[in-house]
Structures are given as C-alpha cells and as structure tokens.
Simulated scan of single mutants.
Amino acid sequence: MADFKRREVRALGQPKTVYVSGSGPAVVIMAEMPGISPHVARFARWVRDAGFTVYMPSLFGRDGAVQSADEGAAVFRRTCISTDFRALGGGLASPVTEWLRALARIALDECGGVGVGAIGMCFTGNFALSMMLDEATIASVLCQPSLPLDNPAGIEISAEEISTIRKRLDRENLDVLAYRFEGDRFCRAERFATYRQALGNHFVERVLPDSAAKQDVPPFFEKHVRSPHSVVTVHLIDEQGQPTIAARDEIIAFLRGRLTKK
C-alpha cells in the first residue's frame, strides 16, 4: 500500500486512519470484511486511475494483509460487538456512518467538485446509502450489503432515514447502484426487494450469476463465506468480457457521470 498516503483524519473529535491516493473528485471506498485486503486496494487503484481521489478509511482488520481464516474470523467477531457497528437487528444505521459522513465533507473540501462518491462492500455495503443523508455524497454504490446478519430482508437504516434519502433521490434525480451474486448467502434477494420497495426506480440493481464468480479465493472466504459474494474484489475475474469486470466498469462510469458534471 506504498502508493497510498496514510493519514490520520480527525472528524467529530475521533481520529481514524485513512489511505488517500489520486487526484480529481473524491470517492470514499469502505472495505469489506475482514479489512483492506490487496483485493480491496486493487479496486481502489482502479477507481483512482480512472481519475478520482480515493479515501479509504481503515474500519477493521489489518491493513494491506491477506488474513488467515482464523484471523479474519476474529476480526469479524470483534467488529460485531463494536459500538461503532450494528451487525444485528436492522432498522438503524451503524454509528460509524456519522463519522463517514463527516469524512465525505472533509474530502469534498479538499478535492472540490460537485460532490463525493461512496462505495460500500459487505459489512459496509449500506454505509454508502447512509452517507447520502449528507448533501456532500451524491453517488452511492452498494456492493453486496450484508447487514443485518440475522434478517435477510432487513436493511441497516431507519425507516425515517431511508424516507429522507428517497425524497432526496426524487428531488435531485439521483440513483443508487447495487450489486450482488444470485446465490450470495449474506446478501439475498429479500434484501434487494426491501431496497427496491423503499427507493423505487432510483434503486438500480445488478444480480450476477454465480458462475461469474472467481473460484480461487483467500482462506477467510474459502472457510467462512462459501458462496459467491464479493463482486468487485475477491470474486472478481480480471478478464475482459467477465460480468464482474463489466460491474467494475459500470461503477466507474457511474462515478464519472455524477462527479464530473459541470
């Protein structure tokens, strides 16, 4: 991760490590469980190289590492009981999303432009939607949003908050992109149906066939995930013509269309 600048960013009185790289409009990329892996960093580089400044906060795990199955499981357990996150129950956003909204405001001040993009994955998937409660974030991408873990149809946001976001989407003619694999055990069709009902035509969903997922995966995913899951990271097949590459390219085009408007 030598090509990212490691910064301590203080927002709302709380310091967190954020990896920053690139130039152009800001995009906040939030890692999947169990942390900022080489696969997550690779995706961040693709976004950076497309003409954006990437802000990648360290929210859990060991940055830059391919973690073992046991180490990743330990990160998962610690995160589930952390006061920053709300892994179970649904109906409320994780407290850390307030800090992430403040990060988006800082990124907008530093980079300028019309707004900030936000991409969440797995544990952080819905964070990108919650960030739209703040006017700084104008382009949100939800990759396999997996919380709450105990309710396949639940979403990690309150009814009042998602209603506020829906009104904003209507008012500003904004869309939210969302991705999942068809057989994903952690982000199932029921959850996308709930988003669809709440956000209407502004919820632009993509469901990839399980056959599009890479089979050779790191130890944590091999032992604990066991289904196609990570659309633009671990399960992405880096070959032209692959559905996962098409998803990556669509996300970049979406960001470019929203963040580079005059």
Rank of each mutant, 00 (worst) to 15 (best):
S68H: 04
A87L: 00
P243C: 09
D184L: 06
G112E: 13
P228A: 09
T164I: 10
E172L: 11
L59K: 00
I138S: 14
L108N: 04
I251K: 01
E161L: 05
T260W: 14
Y19D: 02
V176W: 02
L103H: 13
G241V: 01
A198G: 04
S158W: 07
T233M: 03
Q240W: 10
S211W: 03
V47L: 01
E222D: 14
A159Y: 07
L129E: 05
A44T: 09
F254W: 06
C111L: 04
E135Q: 12
L177T: 06
P209K: 13
L174Q: 03
S21P: 01
L103F: 15
P243K: 06
L199V: 07
P218V: 08
A73I: 08
D170N: 15
G89T: 14
K223G: 02
M30W: 06
R10F: 02
Q67W: 05
E222M: 07
V217S: 06
V225S: 02
A178I: 03
A253N: 14
G154Q: 12
H224M: 01
G115A: 10
T194N: 08
P38K: 15
A102I: 02
I251C: 04
M56G: 08
H39S: 05
N126D: 07
E98R: 15
S37P: 04
M33Y: 03
R45G: 11
A247F: 06
A74S: 14
F85T: 00
A50T: 09
V232G: 05
F123K: 00
D238S: 10
G183C: 14
A178R: 03
L12D: 13
D170I: 06
Y19L: 11
S68L: 05
D49P: 03
E205N: 11
G183V: 07
R188C: 08
D249T: 15
S130H: 05
S82K: 12
T97L: 04
P57K: 07
I237W: 02
